[in-house]
Design a binder for these strands. Sequence first.
RNA 1: GGAGAGAUGGCUGAGCGGUUGAAAGCACCGGUCUUGAAAACCGGCAAAGGGGCAACUCUUUCCUGGGUUCGAAUCCCAGUCUCUCCGCCA
Length: 421
Amino acid sequence: MHDIKYIRENFDIFKKKISKRNNATDIDKFPELDKKNRELIQEKEKLEQEKKIISKSKDEKMFIKSKDISSKIKKISDNQLKIKTELNNLLSSIPNIAHEDVPEGNDEKLNKIIEIKGEIKSKNFKIKSHYELGENLKMLDFDLATKTTGSRFVFVKDKLAMMERALSNFMLDVHTLENGYREISPPLIASESTMYGTGQLPKFENDQFEIKLDTDDGRKFLIPTAEVILTNIVKNQIIKSSELPLRLVASTPCFRKEAGSYGKDTKGMIRQHQFYKVELVSIVENDKCLDELERMTKSATTILDKLNLPYRKIILCTGDMGFSAEKTYDIEVWLPSEKKYREISSCSSCGTFQARRMNSKYKNLENENVFTGTLNGSGLAVGRTLIAIMENYQDEDGSIIIPKALRPYMNNMTKISSIIG
RNA sequence: GGAGAGAUGGCUGAGCGGUUGAAAGCACCGGUCUUGAAAACCGGCAAAGGGGCAACUCUUUCCUGGGUUCGAAUCCCAGUCUCUCCGCCA
């Protein structure tokens, strides 16, 4: 959500900035709606004042007139509410503006590589994909998931399941013990206003799993990422600045419909309706966002460094960023079977965009209540990390060497080879 | 599942039809005092929105949504949440 005053006063500049964001919302209706809305507010307030004066005078002769005014007010405010709703719908569908240092571009082709790290080891045997490896080991079972549930789900079994669990624990330990994040085990279900706060609603409802509870207290959704629930911890509150920065980490399942990606990554467990992710969230003073973004990205890449996986860091261009982001780094891990880098983490600063939606504030040095800055990043996507390890650490016989950093979390095993042993 | 109690500003907490946007305390900010600090004393201190170049001014807000009334934090109805007790249970 943007500052409406800023849009009003800088409409042309704003429009230009938004046009770089791959935005489908038509913002041309804004000036007229805004104007009409304010006119109605003025009309209404004038009448309200009149009414107030009558009531204070306690002049019984005037009471009839007051009743008349009430019905006029009702009419005007009904109308105003309609306009206001339309205005709100428009406003809440406009994406964040990109920060100045974000490269301009329409799609991922104009993303910029910032850093390439780690050694891509050449193998003198035929590389297998993670799903070949997993199915041969009988530790990834897609057919079984189809039987019990449907497509885009998977059963992870035995030692691979153990590795998935170990990865979560390993990442959580690094982030809590070394990177200064607080561990949270949050609800996996979010209310409508929570989904709105981080920007999933109203525009991206089609990507969300809505679930039905028998209570009557509003719509509920399975979280598509822990970002939603962690960021909304500061919703509707004025947080003490002494509590900032607030750095949180959680390992949770994530649920996504993946609408619009039919036929994309259908093989393997790259793109699933359900997956584990360790998520980092920072709530900071709003002028510290960019520094915090660097810190957060570093926290995420540390995991890859420790696991010795080759990766690169890129900055997304204006057209490729997510709805709420003002600046995003993607971290992509090397997948030898595809011979390319694939996204394993995405770290974004949202500036005050989400805070405005959530109404999350703190008191600054001037003692004013101002919106917080929010950031989120994966540290890392657990399922994809599992894939990356399988493919990068595979041996000729189809077994998988366990990265050294992970061994303490897996009873000091060194290798996953078969179900027996 | 049964029975009660409650929801007021950053926090605690009065008010229970008419200058109450709301007492008091804490916290916070400014000042006096002090070598500095603390204490004490004095003053300030809600948010959102509209109008105005500005000084300033208007409107809304005492959980949410309806209603009664000329007038509601205060009365009525519905809902949400929290707490206590009993029962049941992972």
